[in-house]
Amino acid sequence: MIFPYLRGILSFRKAPMTWMIVIVNVLVFVLITIPSQSNQKIVRDKLNDSFFLQVQGRYFSQFVVDHPEFYGSQLKQIAQFSLDGSIAKSEVMGGLAIRDAYFMKWGDTYDFGGDVIANQRWMSSLQEMNEARQEQPSHNYGVSFFKNDGISWITYQFVHSGFTHLAANMVYLLIFGALLEMMIGSFSLLLIYLGGGAVGAGVFLLFSGATPIPLIGASGAVSALMGFFCVLLGKRNVAYLYFLFIPSKEYMGLVYLPAWVTFLLWILSDLAGVFGNMSEFGGIAYTAHIGGQLSGAGVGLALLAFHYWKGDLKNWHRMLPPTRPLFSKVYFVQEPTRRRILSEIR
Protein backbone atom coordinates (compact mmCIF):
# COMPACT_ATOMS: atom_id res chain seq x y z
CA MET A 1 0.00 0.00 0.00
CA ILE A 2 1.19 3.50 -0.78
CA PHE A 3 0.07 6.94 0.42
CA PRO A 4 1.44 10.42 -0.21
CA TYR A 5 3.51 11.56 2.77
CA LEU A 6 5.26 14.68 1.40
CA ARG A 7 6.52 16.31 4.56
CA GLY A 8 4.08 14.59 6.86
CA ILE A 9 1.75 16.58 9.06
CA LEU A 10 3.24 19.98 9.78
CA SER A 11 2.70 22.07 12.89
CA PHE A 12 0.07 24.79 13.39
CA ARG A 13 2.81 27.44 13.28
CA LYS A 14 3.84 26.39 9.76
CA ALA A 15 0.32 25.88 8.37
CA PRO A 16 -2.19 27.89 10.42
CA MET A 17 -4.93 28.08 7.75
CA THR A 18 -4.87 24.31 7.14
CA TRP A 19 -5.23 23.64 10.84
CA MET A 20 -8.02 26.23 11.09
CA ILE A 21 -9.96 24.44 8.36
CA VAL A 22 -9.42 21.13 10.17
CA ILE A 23 -10.61 22.62 13.45
CA VAL A 24 -13.77 24.03 11.83
CA ASN A 25 -14.53 20.60 10.28
CA VAL A 26 -14.02 18.83 13.60
CA LEU A 27 -16.16 21.40 15.45
CA VAL A 28 -18.98 20.99 12.93
CA PHE A 29 -18.76 17.23 13.37
CA VAL A 30 -18.79 17.39 17.17
CA LEU A 31 -21.40 20.11 17.56
CA ILE A 32 -23.78 19.33 14.68
CA THR A 33 -23.28 15.83 13.25
CA ILE A 34 -22.93 13.82 16.46
CA PRO A 35 -26.09 15.24 18.10
CA SER A 36 -28.11 14.30 15.00
CA GLN A 37 -27.21 10.59 15.17
CA SER A 38 -30.73 9.67 16.42
CA ASN A 39 -32.23 11.08 13.20
CA GLN A 40 -29.79 9.02 11.17
CA LYS A 41 -30.97 5.94 13.04
CA ILE A 42 -34.60 6.69 12.17
CA VAL A 43 -33.73 6.91 8.49
CA ARG A 44 -31.65 3.73 8.69
CA ASP A 45 -34.47 1.84 10.43
CA LYS A 46 -36.92 2.88 7.74
CA LEU A 47 -34.56 1.68 5.06
CA ASN A 48 -34.33 -1.69 6.83
CA ASP A 49 -38.13 -2.04 7.11
CA SER A 50 -38.96 -4.51 4.34
CA PHE A 51 -42.69 -3.66 4.26
CA PHE A 52 -41.93 0.04 3.81
CA LEU A 53 -39.41 -0.74 1.09
CA GLN A 54 -41.75 -3.13 -0.73
CA VAL A 55 -44.66 -0.70 -0.76
CA GLN A 56 -42.45 2.24 -1.69
CA GLY A 57 -40.83 0.08 -4.37
CA ARG A 58 -44.17 -0.80 -5.94
CA TYR A 59 -45.30 2.81 -5.85
CA PHE A 60 -42.02 4.01 -7.31
CA SER A 61 -42.29 1.34 -10.02
CA GLN A 62 -45.79 2.59 -10.84
CA PHE A 63 -44.42 6.14 -10.91
CA VAL A 64 -41.57 5.13 -13.24
CA VAL A 65 -43.96 3.37 -15.62
CA ASP A 66 -46.31 6.38 -15.62
CA HIS A 67 -43.45 8.84 -16.28
CA PRO A 68 -41.11 6.99 -18.64
CA GLU A 69 -39.59 10.23 -19.93
CA PHE A 70 -37.67 10.77 -16.67
CA TYR A 71 -36.02 7.35 -16.43
CA GLY A 72 -33.53 5.05 -18.16
CA SER A 73 -34.38 1.70 -19.71
CA GLN A 74 -32.76 -0.39 -16.96
CA LEU A 75 -34.77 1.26 -14.21
CA LYS A 76 -37.93 0.77 -16.26
CA GLN A 77 -37.16 -2.94 -16.58
CA ILE A 78 -36.59 -3.34 -12.84
CA ALA A 79 -39.85 -1.43 -12.25
CA GLN A 80 -41.67 -3.88 -14.51
CA PHE A 81 -40.26 -6.84 -12.53
CA SER A 82 -41.52 -5.21 -9.37
CA LEU A 83 -44.99 -4.64 -10.83
CA ASP A 84 -45.03 -8.28 -11.99
CA GLY A 85 -44.91 -9.33 -8.34
CA SER A 86 -41.20 -9.70 -7.56
CA ILE A 87 -40.83 -8.83 -3.89
CA ALA A 88 -37.02 -8.64 -4.08
CA LYS A 89 -37.16 -6.17 -6.96
CA SER A 90 -39.78 -4.12 -5.10
CA GLU A 91 -37.35 -3.78 -2.21
CA VAL A 92 -34.58 -2.69 -4.60
CA MET A 93 -36.90 -0.11 -6.13
CA GLY A 94 -37.92 1.01 -2.63
CA GLY A 95 -34.28 1.77 -1.86
CA LEU A 96 -33.80 3.55 -5.18
CA ALA A 97 -36.93 5.65 -4.66
CA ILE A 98 -35.31 7.81 -1.98
CA ARG A 99 -32.58 8.68 -4.49
CA ASP A 100 -35.12 10.03 -6.95
CA ALA A 101 -36.00 13.68 -6.61
CA TYR A 102 -39.17 13.52 -8.74
CA PHE A 103 -40.65 10.70 -6.69
CA MET A 104 -39.66 12.30 -3.40
CA LYS A 105 -41.23 15.58 -4.52
CA TRP A 106 -44.49 14.33 -5.99
CA GLY A 107 -44.77 10.75 -4.72
CA ASP A 108 -46.81 11.55 -1.62
CA THR A 109 -49.46 13.37 -3.67
CA TYR A 110 -49.78 10.59 -6.23
CA ASP A 111 -52.71 8.14 -6.31
CA PHE A 112 -51.21 4.65 -6.18
CA GLY A 113 -54.36 2.56 -5.91
CA GLY A 114 -56.65 1.03 -3.39
CA ASP A 115 -54.56 -0.65 -0.68
CA VAL A 116 -55.41 1.68 2.20
CA ILE A 117 -53.26 -0.15 4.78
CA ALA A 118 -50.16 0.05 2.59
CA ASN A 119 -50.96 3.69 1.77
CA GLN A 120 -51.41 4.73 5.36
CA ARG A 121 -48.35 2.94 6.67
CA TRP A 122 -46.15 4.14 3.81
CA MET A 123 -47.30 7.74 4.14
CA SER A 124 -46.69 7.85 7.88
CA SER A 125 -43.28 6.16 7.54
CA LEU A 126 -42.29 8.48 4.71
CA GLN A 127 -43.34 11.51 6.70
CA GLU A 128 -41.37 10.30 9.71
CA MET A 129 -38.34 9.64 7.55
CA ASN A 130 -38.53 12.99 5.80
CA GLU A 131 -38.82 14.79 9.11
CA ALA A 132 -35.76 12.94 10.38
CA ARG A 133 -33.88 13.73 7.18
CA GLN A 134 -34.72 17.41 7.47
CA GLU A 135 -33.14 17.46 10.90
CA GLN A 136 -29.90 16.05 9.54
CA PRO A 137 -26.95 18.40 8.86
CA SER A 138 -26.52 16.83 5.42
CA HIS A 139 -29.97 18.13 4.49
CA ASN A 140 -29.41 21.60 5.94
CA TYR A 141 -25.84 22.17 4.76
CA GLY A 142 -25.38 19.74 1.84
CA VAL A 143 -25.79 20.35 -1.88
CA SER A 144 -28.60 18.53 -3.66
CA PHE A 145 -31.16 18.79 -6.45
CA PHE A 146 -33.48 20.56 -4.02
CA LYS A 147 -30.90 22.74 -2.32
CA ASN A 148 -28.21 24.20 -4.54
CA ASP A 149 -28.01 27.85 -3.51
CA GLY A 150 -24.61 29.53 -3.37
CA ILE A 151 -24.11 29.11 0.38
CA SER A 152 -24.61 25.35 0.35
CA TRP A 153 -21.81 25.04 -2.24
CA ILE A 154 -19.48 26.21 0.53
CA THR A 155 -21.16 24.80 3.66
CA TYR A 156 -21.30 21.22 2.33
CA GLN A 157 -17.50 21.09 2.50
CA PHE A 158 -17.53 21.24 6.29
CA VAL A 159 -20.09 18.50 7.01
CA HIS A 160 -19.18 14.81 7.23
CA SER A 161 -21.34 11.72 7.56
CA GLY A 162 -19.18 9.86 10.09
CA PHE A 163 -15.86 9.71 11.85
CA THR A 164 -14.08 7.69 9.14
CA HIS A 165 -15.26 10.11 6.45
CA LEU A 166 -14.00 13.06 8.51
CA ALA A 167 -10.69 11.44 9.52
CA ALA A 168 -9.76 10.38 5.97
CA ASN A 169 -10.46 13.84 4.55
CA MET A 170 -8.66 15.65 7.35
CA VAL A 171 -5.51 13.52 7.10
CA TYR A 172 -5.22 14.24 3.37
CA LEU A 173 -6.02 17.91 3.99
CA LEU A 174 -3.20 18.12 6.55
CA ILE A 175 -0.73 16.41 4.24
CA PHE A 176 -1.43 18.38 1.05
CA GLY A 177 -2.79 21.58 2.59
CA ALA A 178 0.07 22.14 5.03
CA LEU A 179 2.77 21.80 2.38
CA LEU A 180 0.88 23.97 -0.09
CA GLU A 181 0.26 26.62 2.53
CA MET A 182 4.00 26.91 3.05
CA MET A 183 4.46 27.31 -0.69
CA ILE A 184 1.58 29.57 -1.75
CA GLY A 185 0.41 31.22 1.46
CA SER A 186 -2.66 30.89 3.68
CA PHE A 187 -5.08 33.05 1.71
CA SER A 188 -4.33 31.33 -1.62
CA LEU A 189 -4.77 27.96 0.03
CA LEU A 190 -8.19 28.93 1.39
CA LEU A 191 -9.20 30.26 -2.00
CA ILE A 192 -8.22 27.05 -3.80
CA TYR A 193 -9.81 24.92 -1.08
CA LEU A 194 -13.19 26.66 -1.16
CA GLY A 195 -13.13 27.30 -4.91
CA GLY A 196 -12.20 23.70 -5.73
CA GLY A 197 -14.95 22.44 -3.42
CA ALA A 198 -17.48 24.70 -5.10
CA VAL A 199 -16.46 23.45 -8.55
CA GLY A 200 -16.80 19.89 -7.21
CA ALA A 201 -20.37 20.69 -6.15
CA GLY A 202 -21.09 22.15 -9.58
CA VAL A 203 -19.82 19.05 -11.37
CA PHE A 204 -21.79 16.86 -8.99
CA LEU A 205 -25.01 18.75 -9.75
CA LEU A 206 -24.26 18.60 -13.46
CA PHE A 207 -23.86 14.82 -13.52
CA SER A 208 -25.96 13.64 -10.62
CA GLY A 209 -29.33 14.07 -12.31
CA ALA A 210 -32.37 14.37 -10.11
CA THR A 211 -31.17 13.01 -6.80
CA PRO A 212 -32.31 14.39 -3.48
CA ILE A 213 -29.37 12.69 -1.70
CA PRO A 214 -27.15 15.59 -0.63
CA LEU A 215 -23.43 15.84 -1.29
CA ILE A 216 -21.35 16.45 1.83
CA GLY A 217 -17.70 16.26 2.84
CA ALA A 218 -14.37 17.92 2.15
CA SER A 219 -13.39 15.37 -0.51
CA GLY A 220 -14.00 17.75 -3.44
CA ALA A 221 -11.95 20.53 -1.81
CA VAL A 222 -9.13 18.16 -0.79
CA SER A 223 -9.10 16.75 -4.32
CA ALA A 224 -8.66 20.29 -5.62
CA LEU A 225 -5.65 20.81 -3.35
CA MET A 226 -4.23 17.48 -4.50
CA GLY A 227 -4.78 18.31 -8.19
CA PHE A 228 -3.15 21.71 -7.70
CA PHE A 229 -0.22 20.18 -5.85
CA CYS A 230 0.38 17.48 -8.46
CA VAL A 231 0.44 19.98 -11.34
CA LEU A 232 2.69 22.31 -9.41
CA LEU A 233 5.25 19.65 -8.57
CA GLY A 234 4.72 17.56 -11.70
CA LYS A 235 7.66 15.25 -12.25
CA ARG A 236 9.39 16.22 -9.03
CA ASN A 237 9.92 13.32 -6.65
CA VAL A 238 8.11 13.53 -3.32
CA ALA A 239 7.96 11.19 -0.34
CA TYR A 240 5.32 8.46 -0.18
CA LEU A 241 4.64 6.17 2.74
CA TYR A 242 4.68 2.51 1.75
CA PHE A 243 3.99 -0.86 3.35
CA LEU A 244 4.31 -4.08 1.36
CA PHE A 245 2.70 -6.54 3.81
CA ILE A 246 6.10 -8.00 4.76
CA PRO A 247 7.04 -7.23 8.35
CA SER A 248 10.67 -6.38 7.73
CA LYS A 249 12.57 -3.09 7.63
CA GLU A 250 13.13 -3.06 3.85
CA TYR A 251 9.47 -3.32 3.06
CA MET A 252 8.04 -0.31 4.87
CA GLY A 253 9.08 3.31 5.04
CA LEU A 254 9.26 6.27 2.67
CA VAL A 255 9.95 6.11 -1.04
CA TYR A 256 10.48 8.95 -3.49
CA LEU A 257 8.17 8.91 -6.52
CA PRO A 258 6.97 11.66 -8.91
CA ALA A 259 4.16 13.85 -7.61
CA TRP A 260 1.93 13.01 -10.59
CA VAL A 261 1.63 9.41 -9.30
CA THR A 262 -0.81 10.70 -6.67
CA PHE A 263 -2.95 12.37 -9.31
CA LEU A 264 -2.94 9.24 -11.45
CA LEU A 265 -3.86 6.82 -8.64
CA TRP A 266 -6.55 9.17 -7.34
CA ILE A 267 -8.24 9.86 -10.66
CA LEU A 268 -8.07 6.19 -11.72
CA SER A 269 -10.00 5.10 -8.65
CA ASP A 270 -12.54 7.91 -9.08
CA LEU A 271 -13.08 7.09 -12.76
CA ALA A 272 -13.48 3.41 -11.84
CA GLY A 273 -16.14 4.50 -9.35
CA VAL A 274 -17.95 6.59 -11.95
CA PHE A 275 -17.93 3.93 -14.68
CA GLY A 276 -18.32 0.93 -12.38
CA ASN A 277 -21.58 1.90 -10.70
CA MET A 278 -25.07 2.15 -12.10
CA SER A 279 -26.10 5.79 -11.95
CA GLU A 280 -29.33 4.76 -10.19
CA PHE A 281 -27.25 3.41 -7.29
CA GLY A 282 -25.21 6.55 -6.75
CA GLY A 283 -21.44 6.53 -7.07
CA ILE A 284 -22.09 10.13 -8.02
CA ALA A 285 -19.88 11.66 -5.32
CA TYR A 286 -16.95 10.48 -7.46
CA THR A 287 -17.88 13.20 -9.94
CA ALA A 288 -17.37 15.78 -7.20
CA HIS A 289 -13.88 14.37 -6.59
CA ILE A 290 -13.06 14.55 -10.29
CA GLY A 291 -14.45 18.08 -10.50
CA GLY A 292 -12.28 19.13 -7.56
CA GLN A 293 -9.16 17.49 -8.98
CA LEU A 294 -9.58 19.05 -12.41
CA SER A 295 -10.31 22.49 -11.01
CA GLY A 296 -7.22 22.30 -8.76
CA ALA A 297 -5.13 21.07 -11.69
CA GLY A 298 -6.51 23.90 -13.85
CA VAL A 299 -5.53 26.53 -11.30
CA GLY A 300 -2.09 24.94 -11.01
CA LEU A 301 -1.59 25.05 -14.77
CA ALA A 302 -2.74 28.69 -14.87
CA LEU A 303 -0.25 29.58 -12.14
CA LEU A 304 2.60 27.84 -13.96
CA ALA A 305 1.62 29.59 -17.21
CA PHE A 306 1.62 32.92 -15.37
CA HIS A 307 5.12 32.36 -14.01
CA TYR A 308 6.28 31.16 -17.40
CA TRP A 309 4.88 34.33 -18.95
CA LYS A 310 6.57 36.40 -16.28
CA GLY A 311 9.77 34.49 -16.96
CA ASP A 312 10.44 33.54 -13.32
CA LEU A 313 9.63 29.83 -13.56
CA LYS A 314 13.12 28.94 -12.31
CA ASN A 315 12.67 31.15 -9.24
CA TRP A 316 9.33 29.54 -8.65
CA HIS A 317 10.91 26.10 -8.68
CA ARG A 318 13.31 27.19 -5.96
CA MET A 319 10.32 27.45 -3.61
CA LEU A 320 9.62 23.77 -3.98
CA PRO A 321 10.61 21.31 -1.24
CA PRO A 322 13.92 19.40 -1.48
CA THR A 323 13.79 16.14 -3.36
CA ARG A 324 15.71 12.85 -3.73
CA PRO A 325 16.28 10.47 -6.69
CA LEU A 326 13.48 8.27 -7.98
CA PHE A 327 12.84 5.12 -5.89
CA SER A 328 15.23 6.18 -3.14
CA LYS A 329 13.95 4.89 0.19
CA VAL A 330 14.03 5.79 3.85
CA TYR A 331 13.47 2.85 6.19
CA PHE A 332 11.81 3.60 9.48
CA VAL A 333 14.19 1.50 11.49
CA GLN A 334 17.30 3.36 10.35
CA GLU A 335 16.91 5.94 13.07
CA PRO A 336 19.88 8.26 12.37
CA THR A 337 19.21 8.29 8.61
CA ARG A 338 15.50 8.77 9.15
CA ARG A 339 16.12 11.72 11.45
CA ARG A 340 18.58 13.28 9.05
CA ILE A 341 16.23 12.96 6.09
CA LEU A 342 13.15 14.08 7.96
CA SER A 343 14.98 17.16 9.20
CA GLU A 344 16.13 17.75 5.64
CA ILE A 345 12.65 17.59 4.11
CA ARG A 346 11.21 19.79 6.81
Binding site: S269, L271, A272, F275
Partner: peptide
Protein backbone atom coordinates in the same frame (compact mmCIF):
# COMPACT_ATOMS: atom_id res chain seq x y z
CA UNK B 1 -6.25 0.73 -9.96
CA UNK B 2 -5.66 0.19 -13.68
CA UNK B 3 -7.67 -3.04 -13.70
CA UNK B 4 -10.39 -1.45 -11.54
CA UNK B 5 -10.86 1.18 -14.23
CA UNK B 6 -10.56 -1.30 -17.12
CA UNK B 7 -13.24 -3.61 -15.72
CA UNK B 8 -15.53 -0.85 -14.44
CA UNK B 9 -18.03 -1.04 -17.36
CA UNK B 10 -18.25 -4.84 -17.02
CA UNK B 11 -18.75 -4.55 -13.27
Amino acid sequence: PVIALAIAPFR
